Structures are given as C-alpha cells and as structure tokens.
Amino acid sequence: MSSSGGVITPEASTVYLISEAHSYLKAAALRAVAQLGVADHLGDDPRPVEELAEATGTDADFLHRVIRLLATIDVFRQEEDGRISLTPLGQGLRTDSRYSARWGVVMSTMHTHWSSAFELGDGLRTGKAPFPALFGEQYFDYVAGNPEAAAEFHGGMGSFSGAARRLALDEYSFPEAGTVVDVGGGTGGFLRDILLENPGLRGVLFDQAHVLPGETPRDIASERWTEVAGDFFEEVPADGDLYVLSYITHDWSDEECVRILRNCRKAMAPGARIAVFDAVVEPGNEPDDAKLLDLVMMMLVSGRERTAAEFGRIFDQAGLRLARILPAQGPLSVVEAVAV
C-alpha cells in the first residue's frame, strides 16, 4: 500500500498497519524451518508434508501451516496435490547452497535480537542500544563469552555477509600485487575470496585471537595469508597496500570508527587505500536494506549505517579522504578512502 496515489481510508490504514506489525511472524517461520533444516529434505521433486514432517521430527499439521505462510513470500510452493516444493528463492535455505542463508536466518533471529527489538521503544527514549541493559554487557563481549551465541553469530555472519560481499567484490578492482590486510576479518572467508580471485596478492587476517581460525586445513588461498591477533582499537598490522574493513564500521560509533580508521591510516604503506565494505544509506523514501540494518545496529551496539556524507566526516577526522563509493547489487557498497 502506498499513500502516493489514491485515497487511503482510515479502515484501510488500520488494516495495513496491523498487517505490517505481523511481519515478525514471517521471520519466526523462517527461523523455525532454518533451525530444523526443512529445505535440506527437498530436492528436485515435491514431497508430501507428512514425509517432510517425519524427516524433520515435526508435527505435520504445524509444519504445513508454517510452510503455507512461507509460500506467500515465495520460499516454498504448495502444489495442487498438496505436496511441497522448494522455490528458486528458497534454495538459499539449503545447507549445501553456496553462501547458504540457513545460518544467516538463524543469526538474524537470535533470542538476543528479538529481545532487543522488543525494547526498541526504550532505546528511542534513552538514545542507547537496549542490548547492554537487557543482557548486562556489551554485545560483542556477550558473544565472546557465550559459546551458543558465538556459534550462531559467526556461522550466521559467514552466510549473511558472504553473498553480499560476493556481489560487492564484482564492483571493486583490487591491486595486482601487494598485501591486503583484512581488519576484523573473522575466520577469513572474505579474505579467502579476495586471494582466490587475485593470485598476485598476499593477505593478513587480523582479528582478536579467539575469533581467528587458527589450526584449520589449509587451502590455496590461506597458504598466502598470515594470521595476526590484536585489537584494532590499539593498532593494526603495518605496511599494507589495501586495508579492507567488511561489516566493521557499522558496529561502532563515529568516535570509535575514527580510532579504528586512524590506526589504519598510521599503518598504511605509501599510496595505500582503505576499502570499507558496508551499507550506505540512500536519501529518499524508497525501500532500503541499509535502513533495516541500521535498526539492528541501534538495538545491539553503538554503531549505525551511514550516509555518504557521514562516511566523509569520519574519514576526514581520521586523516583520510573519501575517494569514491561503488554501489553493488545487494546491501553493500564499497566506500574507498585514501590518505590525505
């Protein structure tokens, strides 16, 4: 429904708004089928819901009703004979799908996120993220100290960010040679993609010690990187030719971002660049994933999604200059900065 054309009656407005308020139920349904791996039991051929229920250890009637709702958003399809199939959009829920969305859905609907969203009104009154008051510590401290939350978070970020970063990679030209420093690079999925597509580069995977993958099976990409443990608020590895920050700046306040970016500025080799892979909030009233993600930041941490002008300001304060923004198909853009 749009108010840009036609007459919207009070009754229509009420029905529309209440329907929108029920949108969280679609998220709950997605979480349920992702947790239970329902999509993994659907191949090329439709299956009766009773078979799906038996395979997933669920109640057939309840499962049917959840799938019926998700069919309205083109995740599943209910055939005329009642059997269930997986749509092309729903394929991302399969665990074996490249950049599977399964754990990203689970992460996006973690109990911590639901609870913080419920208290968003309190956040509006205080100007502070609800999460710390609810859980007694900062979000990333909680994740680090809670194995179950850590598994959901890191597994989810791998899938949530993987597909978006894949789209953004197609828009950015990496140097032919030199060293890429992935600042806050987690378990190395993004750096691996960069190195696989740019064989002349070497990499540094930089993050806190408890996040780094450590002793894992090596592959052609990870043989060309070194792992460095540290805190990007203190310093980052020196002499990189390109510093990559993917899904990092949106986690932190402007002041905290300036500290991170200043440390990158100090460490940069002559002629080096910084590439921030993050959402950029666009002007206007059109649907924008960055505006959704911005509320997630508001609920959980001190950060925010930023406009181009807001990126320019934090770069200026860090001794950098905004060089260009490369929009990508998906929620991410590449925001490039150079030393002043």
Rank of each mutant, 00 (worst) to 15 (best):
M1W: 03
S4F: 02
I8Y: 00
I8P: 00
H22E: 15
A32P: 04
L42D: 13
P46N: 09
R47K: 15
V49R: 11
E51K: 04
L52P: 15
G57Q: 10
F62H: 14
L70I: 11
A71S: 11
I73S: 05
D74H: 06
Q78S: 00
E80D: 14
G92S: 07
L93T: 14
S97E: 15
R98S: 12
S100Y: 02
V106M: 06
S115F: 00
A117H: 03
F118P: 10
L120T: 13
G121M: 12
G136M: 08
E137Y: 01
A144L: 10
P147F: 01
A150N: 12
E152T: 01
H154N: 02
G155V: 10
G155K: 09
G158L: 01
A168R: 08
D170A: 00
D170T: 09
G186T: 03
G188S: 11
G189V: 06
D193W: 01
L196M: 07
E197S: 12
E197L: 13
R202D: 15
V204I: 09
A209V: 15
H210L: 02
E215I: 08
D241N: 05
L242E: 15
S246D: 11
S246Y: 06
D251C: 01
S253R: 02
E255V: 13
N263V: 15
K266C: 06
K266M: 13
A267N: 11
V276Q: 08
F277R: 09
V280F: 03
E286L: 12
P287M: 07
L292N: 04
L293K: 13
M297P: 09
M298F: 15
M298A: 08
M299G: 01
S302H: 10
E305P: 06
F311L: 14
L322I: 14
L326P: 10
E336N: 05
E336Y: 00
